[in-house]
Structures are given as structure tokens and as C-alpha cells.
Design a protein around this nucleic acid. Structure first.
Lengths: 326, 326
DNA sequence: CTGTTAGCGCTTTCAA
DNA sequence: TTGAAAGCGCTAACAG
């Protein structure tokens, strides 16, 4: 910047205010032109570290995604990244466990988004020195700032679809019930069943992990109960993929013997065999809202527990049909 | 740090050297103890911006992954992140197009890893002011620094497996041939075919994109040639998933009518129907090697074009069988 | 064994 | 309309 100032024959403070579009500054057009020309000629690029040191603002947001291989985070990150960019921030993503690396991330960002999957422990938000943090896709203790989608409505929608196909023995491959997200999904299943006047036998809900393996294991168990369920609502699409595998494994077929629906419309859903019927949740929007909330907190707002209520959308493909014998 | 120094009754420079484990420093044990106690009591955390400003080192590495929803990058990132952590660096990932946000990333990191997918244009490495950059999983113009795996060997392995099953009409769903990675894979296919004394009819290779859609479209085309191929080597596993869908679409089945192998062992391969036989490439290792190379360049080394030659591994599942009529 | 000093590149108040 | 000056928190010679 010193070079630019010298080149333009002005002081660095002028260059700085010009570059930051200081509105309290009135500058002669020709001077401005001279400075801008110098900036261009020297290909000047401000030094982020110096700026950060001075302003105590990094203009970056961090997003912690321990399970990078889970594609739903890609969509959340996309939404968050776009919103951050619109606000002039960079979104820096960190894979790896929330604990260790977060500390190192902390002083490189003005705020943190935790997309920490289910089973893992909730990071401790509002640590004294740390920048504000928000949980994405799950709630934390007390009123930790968080943004979730309407999981309950999503699973209810999936369940109602099965109901409309005339299923009544509908099972639920539930997520880990120590996670609120999984509990909300289960509640959506129960909601829809009871609203239809059906009762919800305990043996038709099996708790499992949010992955293919968990979905497969729970489904295997479910297929052993009699009378056998004719349809399965999986707590997420990875579990649904596992569920379909387990149905085949049992010598049955989807959807003739058992229908399967998954939550979250993963990219390859339509290429599965059969193509998986899913409920699409507003994930990118959730990411965007999380950034909004975080930006607010950086500005001093208290935070809060937000739910994105954009209605889930049913994507009908080939994994559901009427119950066998109909 | 000033507070810590005051608390311990020493100068900040002492604190700094102590905290950075300066070996040329000899300090009285009790003094060291006093400083460390103060650090703990005050919960002192060094200011990254100040340190960066002073040392001109961020101790962070950036990784640009435009297509975050492609799971193979998750594994590459894992390998890179672990290696970076071992060297005392943080790995900062940025989704989004390489062009725009790279500029903003550039002065927050000491080096950049570009995991820029295929179709997209190669980023311009060695821009004057920019930190060193490396291409991952593809080569660039001239001798841009890059790290790739042995794609040729991987696809050759897949092809030989099909050959061992007695296939001879083996087709290749090739990746975009303007990308070296895709060309190497194609060469692996040709290698294996010729080594087996077979010729490689042009109509059995179809160029397509690296995704499900491309794999499906090319496969549909391939199934129309007569005599119809009995097996397909897909340039990656997403394309393989699309290929399997296209086979079904044509009223045929995998592997009875057509066998399919994919490159890259994606997480849900074993849950597909049928479970996909793949070739596992050393992706995490590629990420790690890329970090090594980048760290070297940061230290002044020239870079270079590296290939990770760890042998690919065949993961036999259910998508391949002997040709029909055997 | 420990302290002094200068300065990294920027922003911001104040003065001219 | 522009410049001077101070200082953000740290590191690295160098001096004592």
C-alpha cells in the first residue's frame, strides 16, 4: 500500500479510505483516478493479516464438517457459501473432528458453523474467547443458536405418501434417538400414523445409525416381525439405501414386497435400483439461514433456535408401490 | 501476550520465544514455569493475524474443491488434512468455483491444492503474487506441479479382471478426453485389451462426462452396437452407477447380460443393486503426497509432477460375471 | 539468562 | 481535500 501511495503521490491513509469506500471521504476525482491507476499498475492486493490485525475482523466464516463424505453437507455448504459470499465473507470448511482443529480455526474466522453429525458430541458453543458458533441440522443444549429444517414435516410427508398408497403396516428405521433431529423425524412418522387413525406398534420402529449399515441392520430386524411391514420410512437416504439392500438380502423385492422412502434427496437417488423415492429438504436454504443468523450474532444479536419451514417436497421415483396383495 | 509477560514479570519477547520453543534460548526453569503458569492462568491464545503479519506465514493450506458433492474428494481431503495437521498446518477447504474465491483464499494460506474436477478449466498456477499451487488428480500444462494416481494401472486392472472372466467384447465408458486423467484411464483399457491379444474397436469406446448421467447415456449407446458388448469398464464409479441404470433401462441385467466395473471405491458401492465391483485407488495417499509436495514448494523446492504408484486394488462384488452364453 | 527495539501492512482519528 | 501519527499483537535481531 505504501508503494501505491508513493506511486500516486498521496498518503497511505488516502489509499486505504479509497479502497474501503469510506463515505465520509470526499476526494477530488483526479486524485481518486490516480490512486486507482496505481492500484492497477502495481496489481496491489491488500494484506489480509494486516487488515485483520487492525480491525479484529477476518471476514471469514468457518464451517466444521467432520463427515465430508456425506453429500448432504455439500448442499448445506453450497447454501452457506453463497450467502456468505453475498455478505462479503469467505466460507472456510474444515473436515476432521470438531474438537482439535476448531481451536486452530477459531482465530481465523469471525464465526463458526457446526455441521456436526448426529452421533458425535455437540461442540461447546460460547466458549469465552471463541467467536460465535451455530449448530446446523441439530439443536444443542438449552437455547444454543441453531438452524434446523422441519424434519417432522418431512418424515410425515413421506409417511402420508405411503399411507396414500394404502399401506398400513409402515415401519420406521429411526435415527439415533439421542439426537433431536432423529427424534423430530420419528415424531413425524408417529404424527402421520396417528392422524390416519393407525396405532404405532413399538416393534415397527427400530433405532439405528444414520448410515447404510445401520439402515440395513434395522431393516433386517424389521423384516422378521410378523406380520411383516409392507413399507419402510427411513430416517435418511443413506439408511434407505441400506434398507433396500436388506430387503433384497431377505429375498424380497422393492417395491413389490416392501416399499422404501428416504429423507434427503441425495444426488444418485434416481440411479439406484429401484430409483429411490425421497423427500427433499431445503438444505441449501438451511445453510444460508445459518449464515444469516451467524452474521447477526457477529453483529451482536443474541442468536436463537431457527427452523426453516420451507415445505419439504416429495420426489416420487420407483421404490414405493401399493402393499403386496392389493 | 503483554498480559502474560506482565503476569510473569518478564518481557514479551521471552514469552514469545518460549511459546515458539526457540532452541537458541536458554531460560531458567523457574522462569519458564512462571511464564507457562501465566499462559495457563490467563488462557492465553496467540493471535494468528499478528503472527502471520510478522512472519508472513499463515500456517494454513487451502484446498479448492468445486464439486464438494463428489465423495472421492472427501477421501483426498482426509489424506491431505491428516498430513497437513502432522506438519502443523491447518487445511482450509473451499467449495465454489476455483476462479473467484481463490483470490480471497490466497492470502489466507501458504499454498493451494486444486482438486478441480475434470471439465472445469485448469486454474492458472504460479501467478506472480500468489502462493504455490498444486493440481490434484490431474496434470496441468507443461510441468505444473501435480499429483495423480496410476489411473492407467487402475483401469487396466479392472479390464484384466473382466478378461479373466472370459469377456472379450469389453467396452469402455471413457471420461472426457480433454482431461489427462481420463486419457490415462482409457490407455489402461487399451493396454489390457491389447496385452490380451484383442483389438480395440473404436465403437466400443464412448467418451462421456464423469457422472451418472454421462455414464448412462454412453452405455445406452454402447448397448446398441452389434454384437453387443458383454462388459463395461467405466472411467469412474459415478459413471458406473449410470451404466448399471442404463443396462436395466434397456431391459437387460447386470451382471447376467452385461458386467460393469467402476474406478474408485465409493462408500455405497456395496449397497448398490447389484453391489458394484470397483478398483480402489490410493486417494487419501494422493492427498497426503500433494501436501508433502506443496510443503516442499513452500520451502523453495521446484515442485514437479508426481504419480502415486501404490497399486490399485480390485474390490470384487456382484456386478461382474462371465459373459452371457458361457 | 533476559530485555530493548523495530517493524510486519493496514486503519482511523485528528489536524491541517 | 489530504496528511500525520499511533497502534493492532507479535517476532527476531541484537544488546546487555
Amino acid at each position: 500500500m505504501k508503494d501505491v501511495a508513493a506511486e500516486a503521490g498521496v498518503d497511505t491513509s488516502l489509499v486505504s479510505r479509497l479502497l474501503n469506500a469510506d463515505k465520509t471521504l470526499s476526494v477530488r476525482p483526479e486524485t481518486e483516478e490516480r490512486v486507482m491507476a496505481a492500484v492497477r499498475r502495481l496489481a496491489y492486493r491488500p494484506n489480509t493479516a494486516a487488515r485483520t490485525l487492525k480491525t479484529a475482523r477476518t471476514m471469514a466464516l468457518g464451517m466444521v464438517i467432520p463427515d465430508l463424505s456425506n453429500v448432504i453437507y455439500a448442499e448445506i455448504a453450497r447454501g452457506a457459501g453463497d450467502r456468505a459470499a453475498a455478505a462479503g465473507y469467505v466460507l472456510l470448511i474444515s473436515g476432521a473432528a470438531a474438537e482439535v482443529r476448531t481451536e486452530i480455526l477459531e482465530d481465523r474466522v469471525d464465526g463458526l458453523l457446526y455441521a456436526v453429525a448426529t452421533a458425535q458430541s455437540v461442540p461447546d458453543l460460547d466458549v469465552p474467547g471463541a467467536p460465535p458458533g451455530i449448530l446446523i441440522n441439530r439443536r444443542g443444549p438449552a437455547s444454543s443458536p441453531s438452524v434446523v429444517v422441519d424434519d417432522r414435516a418431512g418424515v410425515a410427508l413421506a409417511t402420508r405418501y405411503l399411507l396414500s398408497l394404502e399401506h398400513s403396516r409402515i415401519a420406521h428405521v429411526a435415527g439415533p434417538q439421542d439426537v433431536d433431529t432423529a427424534r423430530r423425524r420419528r415424531r413425524g412418522y408417529v404424527d402421520a400414523m396417528t392422524a390416519a387413525g393407525l396405532d404405532v406398534p413399538a416393534e415397527l420402529t427400530v433405532e439405528s445409525t444414520f448410515d447404510e449399515e445401520g439402515g440395513a441392520a434395522s431393516t433386517a430386524a424389521l423384516l422378521r416381525v410378523t406380520p411383516r411391514p409392507t413399507a419402510i420410512v427411513a430416517a435418511n437416504s443413506n439408511a434407505a439405501v441400506g434398507a433396500m439392500a436388506a430387503v433384497r438380502e431377505a429375498g424380497l423385492s422393492v417395491p413389490q414386497d416392501v416399499s422404501v422412502v428416504g429423507l434427503h434427496d441425495i444426488p444418485h437417488a434416481s440411479y439406484l435400483n429401484p430409483a429411490l423415492t425421497t423427500v427433499r429438504m431445503p438444505l441449501a436454504e438451511m445453510g444460508g439461514r445459518a449464515v444469516d443468523l451467524l452474521l447477526g450474532m457477529i453483529a451482536g444479536d443474541p442468536g436463537g433456535a431457527v427452523m426453516v419451514t420451507t415445505p419439504p417436497e416429495l420426489i416420487v421415483r420407483a421404490s414405493c408401490g401399493p402393499p403386496a396383495g392389493r
